[in-house]
């Protein structure tokens, strides 16, 4: 494999990772959604490139699904929800931006240190991709933990799924069955999230999850 091909694969995967880091410090909900859409586009480019490198045309379908569903449909729908709920100007954060970024960088370093020495046997493209993918998964988790807004948590979850797809396509010749089902599950996830977002709104007039926590079953007893 020529170094250029390798570098381009690297570039796209790293692009997904950089966008994951960017997600961490966006404090407006609309910005979060936009960065997520961009990440989905870069992901689909990465998957498409993998399909050329690996000579696996079925990966093009995965790239296409990522582009259409996560790059266009879901962000559009989320923008609509946010506008409908009138929270598009909201700014929210629990841990300060600097600290979150530091934690994010630590997670990236951790995943590279974890994967690099272990995956010696696999081919180099897969190995690099895998370290990036793990970092994206962990950053998605971090986003879900540090944010209190239901919509941002949705985005965090989907960005975690982006990392999973990056990993799945990095693994040479993984059957399509799984990829379709991943796309499928993201879809279900989105429906569920949509349902919850609306129900939360209906009940409490906010999408801030902190409000929910007052209603934890047993805590009422102590009040």
């Amino acid at each position: 494999m020529s170094p250029l091909w390798f570098d381009i694969a690297h570039l796209f995967a790293a692009g997904v990772l950089v966008l994951s880091l960017m997600l961490l410090y966006q404090d407006r909900i609309t910005a979060v959604i936009n960065v997520f859409a961009l990440q989905a586009v870069v992901l689909s480019l990465s998957v498409g490139w993998q399909s050329i490198v690996q000579g696996a045309p079925h990966l093009l379908a995965t790239a296409f699904i990522a582009l259409i569903a996560k790059g266009i449909i879901i962000p559009t729908a989320l923008h609509r929800i946010v506008r409908k709920l009138d929270v598009h100007r909201e700014v929210e954060r629990v841990v300060s931006g600097g600290l979150t970024m530091l934690a994010g960088l630590a997670l990236v370093a951790l995943s590279i240190l974890l994967v690099q020495p272990v995956v010696e046997t696999a081919d180099p493209v897969a190995r690099e991709d895998f370290a990036f993918a793990l970092a994206v998964v962990l950053l998605g988790l971090l986003l879900m933990i540090t944010r209190r807004n239901a919509v941002t948590q949705v985005v965090g979850f989907m960005s975690l799924e982006n990392g999973l797809i990056l990993a799945a396509t990095g693994a040479r010749g993984m059957p399509l069955v799984v990829e379709v089902s991943v796309a499928f599950s993201v879809l279900i996830a989105f429906i569920v999230f949509g349902v919850f977002v609306f129900r939360i709104r209906e009940r409490f007039d906010t999408v801030d999850v902190n409000v929910l926590e007052r209603f934890r079953g047993e805590r009422r007893e102590h009040l």
Partner: peptide
């Protein structure tokens, strides 16, 4: 509210 909180956490 309790059910939604529980479902959200579970999810």
């Amino acid at each position: 509210p309790e059910a939604i909180e529980a479902a959200w956490k579970y999810f």
